[in-house]
Computed example of a mutant assay.
Amino acid sequence: MPSIQPRLAVLSAAAAMSSAAVAACSFAAVAPPESNGRYLLQLTPDQDFTPSDGRPMDVPAWRINAAIASQVISRFNPAQPPVIDYEHQTLHKETNGQPAPAAGWIHGLRWIEGRGLFAEAELTQRAKDVIASGEYRYFSPVFLYAPDTGEVLKVTMGALTNNPAVHGMQALNAMQAAASAQFSPTATAPNEDAMNLLQLLLASLGLPSTTDEKGAMAALTAVGSIKDLQAKAAAGEAATQVATAACTALSLPADAKAETVTAALTAAVAKPDLAKFVPVETVTAMQEQLAALTAKQLDADIDAAVKPALEDGRLLAAQEPWARDLGKSNMAALTAFLDKAPKIAALSSTQTQGQPPAQTAKGDAQLSASELAVCTALGMSPEQYKAGAA
Rank of each mutant, 00 (worst) to 15 (best):
N96V: 05
Q42T: 05
A336R: 01
Q241D: 03
K214H: 14
A100H: 07
K227Q: 14
A222C: 05
P308I: 05
A218Q: 15
Q241F: 00
V374T: 10
P164G: 00
D53I: 14
A67N: 08
S140H: 02
P56L: 08
R7W: 03
P342D: 01
G104I: 08
G236A: 15
S35H: 07
L153Y: 06
T95S: 14
G116C: 05
M331Q: 07
V142L: 10
L198C: 01
L43P: 07
G327S: 02
E320V: 13
A292M: 07
T294E: 15
V261K: 00
W322K: 04
R126I: 09
A238K: 12
S35N: 12
A369H: 01
I73P: 03
H107Y: 11
I64N: 03
S349N: 11
T156V: 15
D53R: 08
Y86E: 04
L197N: 12
L207Y: 06
L316F: 10
G104N: 03
E237C: 08
L172G: 01
L220R: 05
P208C: 09
I64D: 01
N196E: 13
S52A: 14
A194Y: 11
L367S: 11
T350D: 14
V280C: 06
I4C: 04
P321F: 05
I131D: 10
L205Q: 15
M175Y: 13
L265Y: 08
Y86G: 02
Q319S: 02
G379H: 13
K386E: 11
K214Y: 13
Q182H: 12
E192M: 12
P272W: 05
S349P: 02
S381W: 05
T186Q: 10
A203Q: 12
N163Y: 11
S329N: 10
K343I: 03
I302Y: 04
L265E: 07
A178K: 09
